[in-house]
Write a protein that binds this DNA or RNA. Structure first.
Lengths: 161, 161
DNA sequence: ATCAATCAGTTGCGGAAGCAACTATAGCTA
DNA sequence: TAGCTATAGTTGCTTCCGCAACTGATTGAT
């Protein structure tokens, strides 16, 4: 029963993911970042104005809003980002990447891309890679509706303020 | 820079994994299990004698030995497994699945397989699935050496006691 | 205009897990 | 045999994170 091909398939996905995540974490740590800090930094840096409201940040990362509060606390303490009040809605605040944060990200990204190349995309012929990605995309679309469009949910395409 | 195909590739893998994990967790919870409890149960149930030494269990799960101590504490409290002293080596102890644990696993597995089918393996034509799995296997083998052979490390193929 | 309902963010609390220190046992060396 | 080193497992301490409760701001209904 445990050698059911479905179990094996999940095992492959989980192990590939875990293995890659470990390589990533190792490299992030060389730059003083945790995986979630790297994710926060990239999400902010790719957003207009290098900023995002706390709630939107929570929606884009796999964190709860309270989780975001604390990560932002830590990163603000570390100088990677800062909070900025939202002028229109006094309940909201933005997390904004600082210059330091952008520099840290610039330091980290090239190595990160190299590691992806080395352990993931470079392991396969271009055609095989395309097949793999197409399969993953199908599964992702099935299991995670709403992530299909760009990185921004249509409802949040335009910042509230 | 953030639409680099390598970043996208990792995003697909991570999102597919996260989405599936969430579906799994939901179903496990219906049977009163956490994901790591399910994993512990399956690792033990597929081992000879339905048992494994704490250290070997740690090696097969992504937990540290202290992590295993505590999961086993909880599961023993819940009646899913119990500790058994190792007669040859008085430092070691086995975690052994109880009848209750086996029954719980039997309740949980069919639904788990159905969910894998529904959200993962059933989403693709057989040939596309084979391509996906072959790609994942290549990545897994690259990134996670030692997981290639069966489920047991050659060095631990024969139980110590 | 007032009041209720909703929403953004924070905080208290508890659970899960890793690291390092510790205990007890095993095994090797002289 | 005595003693040193390595190993198995547990525990204290800390960090991270989610849930639920809370505060303050906004929106909508009467």
């Amino acid at each position: 029963m445990f050698d059911d091909p479905r179990i094996t398939a999940v095992g492959l996905l989980v192990e590939a993911h875990a293995g890659l995540s470990a390589r990533f974490a190792e490299q992030f740590e060389e730059h003083g970042l945790s995986p979630v800090e790297f994710e926060v930094l990239t999400r902010l840096a790719r957003s207009p104005g290098n900023q995002l409201r706390m709630t939107d940040l929570a929606a884009q990362t796999s964190l709860s809003t309270s989780g975001v509060t604390r990560v932002v606390d830590r990163m603000e303490r570390g100088g990677l980002l800062c909070r900025r009040a939202c002028p229109n809605d006094r309940r909201s605040s933005y997390a904004v990447v600082t210059q330091t944060g952008l520099e840290r990200l610039d330091e980290t990204l090239p190595g990160h891309l190299r590691i992806i190349e080395q352990w993931f995309t470079g392991q396969l012929e271009p055609a095989a890679l395309a097949n793999l990605l197409e399969g993953l995309r199908r599964v992702r679309d099935a299991v995670h509706p709403g992530a299909t469009a760009g990185s921004t949910d249509p409802a949040h395409g335009t910042p509230h303020c």
